[in-house]
Design a protein around this nucleic acid. Structure first.
Length: 209
DNA sequence: GTCGGGATCCTCT
DNA sequence: GAGGATCCCGACA
């Protein structure tokens, strides 16, 4: 049920908004192994997503939507399939995939990816760091992909930022996926320990913490 | 207008 | 493992 058309020669972008119109609990694990694509003027940056976190509706005390809609988090309350970008700690941007279900402000934070194309472009903003750390951690990922607040609200079904899968599909072995508690949300009460972080356990490109 | 906190990262010890 | 960098945003007066 995934509408996918070629981004270029090798990647098929998800262009069906319904794919995003599901709970973050479903979208988060489904994002693992897929590709984040940013078509920049300098060229194409592609990364394989290896770590994400699900942020559920207003009841999730760790989610920005927990305190109601504001100018900052308005994108989270909008239609699914859009990019929600915000600044944390005054210096790092974080990229989120807004999902559903309809009318519910849920999102998936992109925490780490393996850069598989456009590494030189990514290094333009990240400098001389090991490939395994280029996009390890949400702040690093946003920097490597050149994502900042200018892209807040961007439509993921039309680019320039897209979610894609590689084509033709191969049956490459899937690394083992695990779930853990989320990072940096110690203030969220019972929500702190809920296993809403999804990652490939043995992937060297995951975040360090 | 002012104040305080935050979905992080890096360096130094 | 600890602490500093750095600034937007929301709450409150």
């Amino acid at each position: 049920m995934t509408a996918a058309t070629p981004v270029a020669d090798a990647y098929r972008a998800i262009e069906e908004r319904g794919w995003f119109d599901r709970s973050a609990l479903e979208v988060a694990p489904d994002l693992l192994g897929r590709y984040l694509v940013h078509l920049t003027p300098a060229g194409r940056i592609v990364g394989r997503i290896v770590e994400v976190e699900a942020y559920l509706g207003p009841e999730d005390l760790a989610a920005h939507s927990a305190r109601g809609e504001t100018a900052r988090n308005a994108v989270m309350f909008g239609p699914p399939g859009h990019l929600y970008v915000y600044l944390v700690y005054g210096m790092h941007h974080c990229a989120n995939v807004v999902c559903g279900p309809s009318e519910k402000p849920e999102a998936v934070l992109l925490r780490a990816a393996e850069i598989i194309e456009g590494e030189e472009i990514a290094r333009g903003t990240r400098g001389d760091v090991p490939a395994t750390r280029l996009a390890a951690g949400p702040g690093n990922l946003a920097a490597a992909f050149g994502v900042d607040r200018a892209l807040n609200g961007a439509d993921l079904t039309h680019g320039p930022v897209l979610i894609a899968e590689r084509g033709p599909i191969t049956d490459a072995e899937r690394p083992s996926m695990i779930q853990t508690a989320r990072i940096g949300v110690e203030y969220a009460g019972a929500w702190t320990s809920r296993p809403l972080r999804f990652l490939f356990a043995d992937d060297p490109h995951r975040s360090r913490r």
